[in-house]
Design a protein around this nucleic acid. Structure first.
Lengths: 193, 193
DNA sequence: GGGTTATGTGGAGACTGCCTCCGTATAGTG
DNA sequence: CACTATACGGAGGCAGTCTCCACATAACCC
């Protein structure tokens, strides 16, 4: 759980951990836009301390997310083990969307991280896109994925749908039905190109 | 162009118009999250005046959007005239996304308006959903739209994709390719249900 | 233990944006 | 011209982000 910062003083390490824990709590309760002052307060720490450890909101999000990433990787491994390439891709996309629902509003900073690779989220973001590409490629080879579908586009569409479902949770829309549209389209007939 | 407020004093009417014009400018340049203080400043008006005419950011957005709505309705009519139901649906969805790109970040308040119908945007939002339903129903009857696709889901997916494309404009992703995925899915084979 | 110093701490305060309130200005009317 | 309903504007309260630096303290050495 502790992401073992290199060589911090004991109190610094302790504070860092407290902040992280408080951040997870606040982000879970109030979404990704939770007040950082509140996070500091909940951690029993001054604002300066928070900003020294995590210079930007994105950095804090990235760190708070690190834990859930293990689960995502585990689910990716499970999906990879599926014999059916199409099912594997679908399972991966579902896991990805679950992950993006870790905190309310998460898709926004993740998408933002695509563009500026200096973002602390950029790494995991690229990794997610790469894995999407891996599953998509396999589904093109072994399954029924269209050759014309590109990784970036599918990833973007997935992010967009995760965002929309996340925000419209109240009105009764199911992730499943929306994703069914993404998988098979709103049109009935196939016919590539 | 002037949305003819009922019976305002001359200076009030003039100021309202200036604010609206300034809002369009700021929203166009800086997106939907532009500072309202800047809008007031650009309009040469105090903050109080701005808030009296437009009590919330959403109200201002709704008013600033009113102009573009005419174009959207015109495009809807053009789409409705298309003989092919599938093409009509696709054209409508494309127009809708164009409209959602009027201002950077517009999909967010529009989606938010779905949930709270007291929002000034709720009306146009419901109208857009209703029109999507109209085109979808026709495509189900006359074209190749799947019976299992529901209006709310398609509308939501469209919003999500508009959001994602809007935000990822920099990296080279085309609306066309993403929408192709939405239309025909990432899988090759048909087979309803 | 006591002294020294590199490493951290916290909160005051500068800044920005949202929004309200009310003393003042002015358009419209007779 | 006087009078009043209507509208104006900006000061000020609030909340949030982020920085800066006087002060604390962990770690190291004797």
């Amino acid at each position: 759980m502790t992401d073992a910062p290199p060589d911090l003083r004991a109190d610094a390490r302790r504070n860092r951990e407290r902040i992280l824990q408080a951040a997870v709590g606040q982000f879970t309760r109030h979404g990704i836009d939770a007040s950082l002052e509140d996070v500091a307060r909940a951690a029993g720490v001054g604002a300066g301390t928070l900003y020294r450890h995590f210079p930007s909101r994105e950095a804090l999000i990235a760190a708070a997310l690190r834990q859930g990433q293990d689960r995502l990787l585990a689910e990716a491994a499970r999906a990879r083990a599926l014999p059916d390439a199409d099912a594997a891709l679908a399972a991966w996309l579902a896991s990805l969307q679950d992950y993006l629902r870790t905190f309310h509003g998460l898709p926004a900073p993740v998408l933002a991280a695509i563009e500026q690779q200096d973002s602390p989220l950029a790494l995991s973001c690229e990794a997610m896109a790469a894995m999407t590409g891996e599953f998509l490629d396999r589904a093109k080879r072994e399954g029924h994925a269209r050759a014309s579908v590109e990784t970036a586009d599918l990833f973007l569409a997935t992010l967009g749908i995760a965002w929309a479902v996340d925000r419209a949770a109240a009105c009764g829309t199911s992730t499943g039905r929306v994703n069914a549209i993404l998988a098979r389209g709103y049109l009935r007939d196939g016919g590539d190109r």
